[in-house]
Amino acid sequence: MNELVMAVFGAMLLIGAIGTVRSHDPFDKLISLGVLVAGVMPFLADRGYLDVLAATALIAPLSTIFILMAMRREGHGP
């Protein structure tokens, strides 16, 4: 992969991590976590682990949905 493209995706990963830590609303945290997951995926594709990429991309929303289940129980809404 090109060095510039790799730098852009690495910066996206760090932006997602810092945005997750800095935001206060749990929904904002989950959206920033989605940016972090999107930044991880091209690094998996760059090494050639396409099967790991497919499995991880299908498992990662499950983790978000479990956290959303806890948030719905606690009554976080608009």
Partner: peptide, 15 residues
Amino acid sequence: STLESNAIASTWAGG
């Protein structure tokens, strides 16, 4: 990714 985004929006709308 679409599933995750839809789940977040659905929980936000009718939480």
